[in-house]
């Protein structure tokens, strides 16, 4: 059996669509480079060119920031830092862990699997995720992280409930109907994983062991 069959049926809708958000920063950057290059050579710029030389790069950065914000939701982006590689690889392993179960069964969007569970719910969840991503960058640059990796703070159960809360099979579980248990879960005193459900990621993936590159390339 072909392990990675090709064809349009295996492409999510819009996967091959052209990204205007990627082109716009380049379209703005090119004239800005010409203007700033002239300024670099001559040491002065006429007022109109100077204004364009300031506005165009800022606009290019605005669009590029939007591109980063959107692109950083993708699994391939998360897995591009070496420390996250093993975790991304483990998603495809179908090892009965919570994340791989969701991923391999298509219970979360394949391209945005990490973001779906780790961003929390609503606009503040998105804001928190972006801030956390920025701190991940800082920690990657400075090497200020400890292995094995641990979740920073408590997992936001709203990410789970966003999908599960209204599902009849979830509601039908006797343990889920226990009001005391519900309060503990919602307050964060108790976690879904551990006692009742398997951990999200295998312990081996959290140790930063070298990942197989093939699995990460498959996500791109």
């Amino acid at each position: 059996m072909n392990p990675s069959p090709a064809g349009p049926l295996f492409q999510p809708p819009g996967a091959s669509a052209f990204s205007w958000l990627a082109l716009l920063p380049v379209l703005l950057a090119i004239p800005a480079i010409v203007i700033l290059g002239r300024g670099l050579l001559r040491g002065r710029l006429p007022a109109a060119l100077a204004a364009a030389g300031i506005i165009l790069p800022i606009a290019a950065y605005g669009f590029a920031s939007g591109y980063v914000m959107e692109g950083s939701k993708e699994v391939s982006f998360c897995g591009s830092c070496h420390i996250m590689g093993p975790i991304v690889d483990s998603l495809s392993a179908n090892d009965k862990m919570l994340a791989s179960t969701h991923y391999t069964r298509g219970l979360v969007p394949h391209e945005h699997a990490c973001y779906t569970c780790h961003s929390g719910y609503g606009i503040w969840g998105t804001m928190d995720a972006k801030m956390a991503g920025l701190m991940h960058m800082v920690r990657t640059i400075t090497g200020r992280y400890d292995l094995p990796l641990k979740l920073n703070g408590k997992f936001d159960i709203a990410s789970c409930l966003n999908c599960h809360a209204a599902v009849p099979s979830f509601r039908a579980v006797e343990a889920h109907q226990n009001l005391e248990l519900q309060k503990q879960l919602v307050s964060g005193e108790m976690s879904c994983t551990g006692l009742c459900h398997p951990e999200a990621h295998p312990a081996s993936a959290l140790t930063g062991q070298t990942a197989s590159l093939d699995a990460r390339v498959a996500h791109r």
Binding site: A22, L23, P25, V26, A29, A32, I33, L36, G37, G39, L40, L45, G53, P57, A60, Y61, A64, Y67, V68, G71, S72, E74, S76, F77, S80, C81, M84, M137, T140
Partner: peptide
């Protein structure tokens, strides 16, 4: 202008391949 050009140069690798780096 040199600093502006340096900043603009960072856009091209980003668009070519968006990654952590």
């Amino acid at each position: 202008c040199a600093l502006g050009l340096l900043a603009l140069a960072m856009i091209f690798p980003l668009v070519a391949r968006l990654s952590g780096q």
